[in-house]
Design a binder for these strands. Structure first.
Length: 752
RNA sequence: UGGGGUAUCGCCAAGCGGUAAGGCACUAGUUUUUGGUACUGGUAUCGGGGGUUCGAAUCCCUCUACCCCAUCCA
């Protein structure tokens, strides 16, 4: 199915192939300060999934470096979630808190090599000293302390001799770093707090940036995958490991976009608020996007894993449509779960021409679900149908019961409405109907055609059940806070009716209530006396959708207008160069512009032109310099380049005299950039001289045409884009050596 | 504003110079005792503008928009 690999797997594969690592080792490193949500599920699927795919292993690590927010109940929830999803962590659960002694030693090491110091600025001052994104910060005077003093202070911090906030340990990096994270980041802070695991043993706790990379290193992690907001932290990650000399085999961090779903909040803080504010019944409220919530709602692990697979992994911030998740659970349950009949909003129907009672045979599964199993459904004179399934004055396209339209009772008979009984307010209270004795399901000889079959329950034998109908928690697509909550996210129906077999036979815990949706016997509140079902998700409902559409006219969407910004004007010198390039050398203005504005590039161009004897055509050379050399010069200085201007001049000349095509020139250039070899030698060694002789090219074209009759037909039918396909094939066939211009002409000619 | 990222269909997402994958959603039709499922078909020229090239979503220049960073959180 998925031919394509995500970028993380691509990296892992390359690293394995290159021998950078013998085995892939990943980790799922949550902080135990909240219940895991579906965003964690994505991370779990990535970390455990990649480890599985490449036969490595994945650790489960509690990143518990902040004693004030963490708790054992959350580590249980985390373990639970991973297991429920079906993954196995390697060995025991790991805890960063178990590494506190090692981490402390590493910190001491850093102090000893002068790369960390104890700072005694106040929190306020530290913030001030850090500077802003545009202004650099300044170093604290305490950074002057001697190694001995730092060692002494740090040890006393550890021993609890100071109050919270009195001192911190910081890395000595660069207070004017453009990356704010690198302005002497904090490594340790004093916390006189009880840690849920290490108890009162420690008075200093490592910060994330110090603890995480080292924990990864300690565990032998190869690929440390985290979300995008840690991109800036990668520099510290590398700095710590490099500075400590932990660089033989060590982990590298890679970032992917975190999951966001519309109509959903994913921040632990906001979820906590919902729980504490009583807007939901707890972390496992079926409306919560927590794993516990989905589980309680009735979602299957398979559906969630499938969802995580479908949404992919990339670096673009994105918002997944909740419909995609809903599809996954429907798709999973469709082939697994028995169909039964329930009526949520009952309307009584009396079948006046039916006497007595009978039991009807009914399969639990429709024909397209290859599963066995059936039950008996009692039938008698009095039944209930869904109130929605009858309309006195139906709109066009209504398929259900009306005074004029008969309907089949699923698994039973066809009935016809004879009379509508209403109360004093005009509400319909009962339907008087007649059934057709010849129309029994499976042995219908009536010949009557009806537009639909509806669910029903027998009045006498139906069981009363509670049904909790859940809708999305928020009514806003991008909810901010509790003001965006959907007031109708929970509807409790106390007196829904269900066919008896569901309760007495209990064929499953998840069901499809025919024509309504998928439901789950609540794992906590369900009892035989008082059954409770949670709505997992509704069926797709094209009728309901049609009705809604009529109300909302579609609104035309205005196209976004692109604003063009100002281009910085050229300096005088740049302008002079530009004029020279366009005038004397006849470069087009775009190329001249690029060259004139970039001093490095400009110098390079000038040298290539002047030093190659004879000089290449200035235009062709300029093209190569601006389009190819520019790429190399973006990240490197001139001295770092493997090639020199003269060689580029030679390359340009080969293009000038058509020894090689410009396509080949690019290939040669790549080679030069990599090896620094002379272009003429490269062309000779690889035999890249281009083929322009039609008599050599023509046979190849014939061959390609013969091999691709379909595409020839398509091309002749007007799909001119296919020209590229044919040219490409010919070029591929000749190792890129065929003169593309000639090929192009010949192919066009041939296919005319 | 300095730095770091990202932009391909309504929503995700492949693609790495040679015919714009796939899923969801939408839509038309076939099958159907679920207005379900299944099946068949439809639906983009790649943020904008230039340039290089026989050929550009892919390379170069430039502009724009959005996200992250100034917690003793992770």
């Amino acid at each position: 199915m998925s031919e394509s690999k995500d970028f993380l797997r691509t990296i892992v594969e390359e690293d394995l192939k290159s021998g950078k690592y013998k085995e892939v080792v990943t980790r799922f490193p949550p902080e135990p300060n909240g219940f895991p949500h579906i965003g964690h599920a994505k991370s779990i699927c990535i970390n455990f999934g990649i480890a599985d795919d490449y036969h490595g292993h994945c650790n489960l690590r509690m990143d518990d470096t902040n004693p004030t927010t963490e708790d054992t109940k959350y580590v249980e929830a985390l373990k639970d979630a991973v297991q429920w999803l079906g993954f196995n962590w390697d060995g025991n659960v790991r805890y960063t808190s178990d590494y506190f002694p090692k981490l402390y030693d590493y910190a001491v090491e850093l102090i000893k090599i002068g790369k960390a110091y104890v700072d005694s600025l106040t929190e306020e001052e530290i913030r001030e000293y850090r500077g802003t994104v545009t202004e650099s910060g300044k170093r604290s005077k305490y950074a002057q302390r001697s190694v001995e003093e730092n060692l002494d202070l740090f040890e006393r911090m550890k021993n609890g001799e100071f109050k919270d906030g009195e001192h911190v340990l910081r890395a000595r990096i660069d207070m004017s770093a453009a990356n704010m994270k690198m302005r002497d980041p904090l490594l340790y802070r004093i916390r006189h707090a009880h840690h849920y695991r290490s108890g009162d043993e420690w008075h200093v706790y490592p910060m994330y940036d110090f603890g995480h990379c080292l924990s990864d290193y300690i565990e032998g992690i190869s690929h440390s995958m985290c979300t995008l907001e840690f991109e800036n932290n990668r520099d510290i990650y590398d700095w710590v490991l490099d500075t400590l000399g932990l660089d033989t085999v060590r982990p590298y961090q890679h970032e992917f976009a975190r999951l966001a779903i519309n109509y959903t909040v994913m921040s632990k803080r906001k979820l906590l608020e919902l729980v504490e504010g009583g807007q939901v019944s707890g972390w496992d409220d079926p409306r919560m996007p927590t794993i516990a919530g989905y589980r309680r709602r009735g979602y299957t692990p398979e559906s969630i894993i499938n969802f995580c697979d479908q949404i992919g992994i990339a670096k673009a911030n994105s918002m997944v449509d909740v419909a995609q998740l809903e599809f996954c659970i429907r798709d999973d349950l469709n082939t697994k779960v028995p169909r039964v009949m329930a009526v949520l909003d009952p309307l009584k129907v009396t079948i006046v021409n039916y006497e007595g009672s009978e039991e009807l045979d009914a399969s639990y599964y429709p024909e397209d679900v290859p599963k066995e199993g059936s039950r008996k459904i009692p039938f008698s004179k009095e039944i209930y149908i869904e109130r929605d399934d009858f309309m006195e004055n139906p709109p066009k396209g209504y398929f259900r019961l009306t005074p004029e339209q008969s309907v089949r009772l699923k698994h039973a008979y066809i009935i016809t409405c004879k009379e509508v009984i209403k109360d004093a307010n005009g509400n319909i209270t009962e339907i008087i109907a007649e059934y057709n004795p010849e129309s029994k399901s499976g042995q219908d000889t009536s010949g009557i055609k009806v537009k639909s079959a509806i669910q029903w329950v027998d009045a006498k034998t139906a069981k009363t059940v509670e049904v909790r109908v859940y809708d999305r928690l928020y009514s806003s697509e991008a909810p901010e806070g509790i003001e965006d909550l959907n007031p109708h996210s929970l509807q409790v129906i106390k007196n829904a009716l269900i066919e008896p077999a569901v309760i007495t036979e209990k064929p499953d815990v998840r069901f499809q209530f025919e024509r309504q949706g998928y439901f789950y016997a609540d794992p906590i509140d369900y009892t035989d006396e008082k059954p409770v079902f949670n709505k997992i998700v509704g069926l797709k409902d094209s009728w309901g959708k049609k009705k809604k559409e009529d109300k909302h006219a579609s609104k035309p969407q205005a196209k976004k207008v692109q604003i063009d910004g100002e281009v910085v004007p050229m300096s005088e010198a740049e302008q002079a160069l530009f004029d020279k390039y366009t005038g004397e050398f006849k470069l087009n203005s775009e190329v001249a512009n690029t060259l004139a504005r970039d001093e490095k590039l400009s110098n390079f161009y000038y040298e290539a032109l002047a030093l190659s004897v004879p000089s290449p055509n200035p235009v062709g050379l300029a093209n190569i310099v601006t389009n190819e050399v520019a790429r190399e010069l973006k990240e490197k200085s001139v001295d770092e380049l493997k090639f020199n201007p003269i060689q580029i001049g030679e390359l340009a000349k080969m293009v000038d005299d058509e020894t090689i095509s410009s396509k080949i020139a690019k290939q040669v250039f790549e080679e030069m950039a990599k090896t620094g070899e002379n272009p003429i030698q490269i062309v000779e060694a690889k035999g890249l001289v281009q083929i322009s002789d039609p008599s050599k090219i023509l046979p190849i074209i014939d061959e390609i045409i013969a091999k691709n009759p379909d595409n020839v037909a398509k091309f002749k039918a007007g799909n001119t884009k296919l020209l590229g396909f044919f040219v490409g094939q010919v070029l591929k066939n000749t190792g890129g050596k065929a003169n593309p211009k000639v090929v192009n002409e010949l192919v066009s000619e041939k296919l005319k």
